[in-house]
Structure formats: C-alpha cells, structure tokens
C-alpha cells in the first residue's frame, strides 16, 4: 500500500514541465489518469443512475490508434430498497477521427472488452442478493480536450453490453424486491459516461536521452 501511494505521488514528477520527447510519431506514448463514471441507467424496473470512480492508463499504438486499460467501481441505487455494485476491468481501442495528432479537441471512436462483476443486494435484508461475473463489450464515442502537450481531459459515452447472464431487480408495488437472472440477454447493459483526466508520462519506444 505504501509502495502504491509513493508511486502515485511520484508519477507527476517523472516529467513535470519537461517537453514531451517523442521519437517519430505518437506510437508508444504511455499515459495515466483517473476518471469519474456515470452509469446513466440500469436494466430492470429500477433504472436508477449510478456513479463510480476509477482509473486508466493508455498505450498508444500509432498516431491514430490508442489503447485504454481501465478499472471502474460503480454504485447505483435500486429505488430506496437496494444497491447495485459493478466492478469493471478491461480495455478499449480508440480510433482518432482527425489526422492531425495534436489538435486542441481530438474526437475518437472507442470499442473494447471488459470483465465485470455485479452484485445486487437488498438493503434491509442483505441475504437477499444476486451476483454475477461475466464479460462484456462496450463501444461509443468521445473526445480529448488537450489542455497541454501532456494533459488531456476526456469525455466519453459508451454502451456496455454484458455477454453472460442478465441479472436485474424488480421492485413490486408492495415494496418487495426481487432479483432475476436470465440466460443470454445480449443487449442487457448500461450507458456509461466517463470524465477522465490523463497525463502523458513517456514515449515507451522512444529514446530517452
């Protein structure tokens, strides 16, 4: 834990205020950041939005192709009677629409895969719960707002579809909470909106002099 904290504190020092040295193109750029996630809705009768926190790092493959590796922890209410918690860990490919590698605003298309674990639990009766581990695919669009050569704020919207069994909650009129699990509900998922901060640390394939 101490090592992790020390590493987190030292990351900004690695290249602060130094010009970003890149070899030929943006291939190999390694960046790191944090993000806030809004889950706009969930399946089931209780479609309450949720909020999460997470982080990501990116390794760029070419001027127009980037990869993003992320983790998110999201909590959502199930009306007033329960909670849904989602853990996502996965990766995405990002394709930049514009040729220019250094515009102020850089839109992209994003698609990828993730592993997820979801848990639905009734608040008053935690033994009434349902959980599921599965994988998912996600796709959407976003844009970087490049505040400097190294730092961008990214806004992304993507729909995540869970590929395994679908679990969701139903809140009946009498307040009873019921969880359901269905096989192979391909389109079950949620709309995720991310606001992320990302800092380019180093060009991994470039010569560091």
């Amino acid at each position: 834990m101490k090592l992790l904290l020390t590493a987190l504190l030292l990351i900004p020092w690695i290249g602060y205020s130094q010009p970003l040295k890149i070899k030929k193109n943006q291939s190999g750029l390694f960046s790191w950041g944090v993000r806030t996630t809004i889950s706009a809705f969930n399946d089931g009768s209780a479609k309450n939005p949720g909020m999460g926190v997470g982080g990501q790092f990116r390794i760029q493959a070419s001027n127009r192709l980037n990869t993003e590796w992320f983790f998110d922890y999201i909590t959502s209410p199930i009306d007033d009677v329960g909670t849904r918690v989602d853990y996502h860990i996965g990766w995405s490919a990002m394709y930049y629409i514009l040729k220019n590698p250094t515009p102020k605003v850089r839109p992209y298309i994003i698609a990828g895969h993730c592993f997820d674990y979801s848990q639905l639990k009734e608040t008053r009766n935690p033994s009434n719960k349902m959980e599921r581990g599965s994988s998912a695919v996600q796709a959407g669009m976003g844009t970087h707002f490049n505040l400097s050569e190294r730092l961008d704020i990214s806004l992304t919207a993507q729909y995540m579809m869970h590929l395994g069994k679908d679990i969701h909650a139903h809140v009946h009129e009498n307040g009873e909470l019921e969880f359901e699990k269905h096989k192979g509900s391909l389109l079950e998922g949620h709309l995720l909106i991310h606001v992320g901060i990302n800092y380019k640390i180093v060009d991994l394939w470039g010569k560091q002099k």
Binding site: V34, R35, T36, T37, M51, G52, V53, G54, Y73, I74, T75, T123, R124, N125, P126, I153, V195, I197
Partner: peptide, 29 residues
C-alpha cells in the same frame, strides 16, 4: 478544477437494519 474521488463514511442514523453503522466506500467527485 475537477477531481474524481471517494468518500469512506459511516452514517449516524443508518437505516439499514442488517448493516448497522457499516462503513461505506462511496464514489464522489
């Protein structure tokens, strides 16, 4: 500025009977 973050908290009047005074990890910004 903008800062993603978290809150580790307990509520005084925790209404969840089964999890009295439970510590919660809450995503915030």
């Amino acid at each position: 500025g903008f800062m993603p973050g978290f809150s580790v908290l307990q509520l005084t009047e925790d209404r969840s009977l089964a999890d009295e005074q439970m510590t919660r990890f809450v995503p915030t910004f």
